Simulated scan of single mutants.
Amino acid sequence: MAKLKANFNHFCNLLGYQFNSKYLLVQALTHRSASNKNNERLEFLGDSLLNLITAEFLFQKFSDLPEGELSRLRSQCVNKDSLFKIADSLRIKDYIQLGVGEKMGGGQNRPSILSDAVEAVIAAIYLDSSYENTRRIVISLLEQYIVSEIKYSSTKDPKTTLQEYLQSKRYHLPVYVLIETSGMAHDQSFKIECQIKELHISTIGIGKSRRIAEQNAANLALQKIGKTNE
């Protein structure tokens, strides 16, 4: 138990926050496979807090951007990929509490489990302290990902560009279909088909997440149409 406490102290140092209630931290890092007292409810609250704090940050930083552009930036900044990067930097896989079966299946490396734990930790900070404290920690954790996305804010992602082009031509929106998932749970690869029936276009995108695979498929569709991502 002393070793566990030392590990959690190290985690708190990486996080930049020392918990008053160790119970909240333990619950935030407990997967449903390990206990009935798990992080699912905290994950629900943390997701809302994360979106609110990010929206507030973008709203204040970019006072001239319209609602649609702010929404696009938020979706780029807050997603499973960025949360997994944060989980990796905090070494959450070393602290997450899993059931025996989940652990044997490599759950400690599964992006969905680790990104959910990040949201749960955010909620735990909020319940343990205050909104302002939570905001400070979240901005600190997300800033490098927010900044990297904002650098390319003038460039729309391929899915957005494709959707806007099709809408301008009064075509139906593209359909994205999951064709195949391969690899181990912690290192999966997704194959997504982008279908544009009116143009008789079908492209295949591959990526480490569904989001990346869809973007790659959309980019290939744009190339077939002869329109570059702008």
Rank of each mutant, 00 (worst) to 15 (best):
S71H: 12
V78M: 02
L58I: 15
P66W: 09
F59G: 00
I86A: 03
G68L: 14
V78K: 06
G106F: 08
G107Y: 07
E67D: 11
Q60S: 12
D88T: 15
K80G: 07
D88F: 09
L58W: 14
L90C: 02
L58M: 05
K103A: 12
F62V: 01
R74S: 06
V78P: 04
L58V: 03
L98T: 11
I86W: 00
D81C: 03
M104V: 07
C77G: 00
Q97W: 02
L65T: 02
F62G: 01
K93W: 11
S89Y: 02
D88W: 11
L70N: 10
L58A: 01
I86H: 01
G99V: 01
G99L: 01
G107H: 03
P66E: 10
F59K: 15
L58H: 09
G105M: 10
E69V: 08
N79I: 06
I86C: 03
S63K: 12
G68N: 15
V100K: 11
I86R: 00
S82Q: 12
L83C: 07
L90M: 04
D94C: 04
D64L: 09
V100N: 08
G106S: 02
L73E: 15
A87V: 08
Y95P: 01
G101C: 05
F59N: 14
S71A: 13
K85A: 01
E67Q: 13
I92Q: 03
K61M: 09
Q76P: 04
G68R: 14
G68T: 08
R91D: 15
K80A: 11
K93P: 03
Q76K: 15
D64R: 05
S89R: 14
D64S: 14
S89H: 05
D64F: 10
N79R: 12
S75G: 00
R74W: 09
D81T: 08
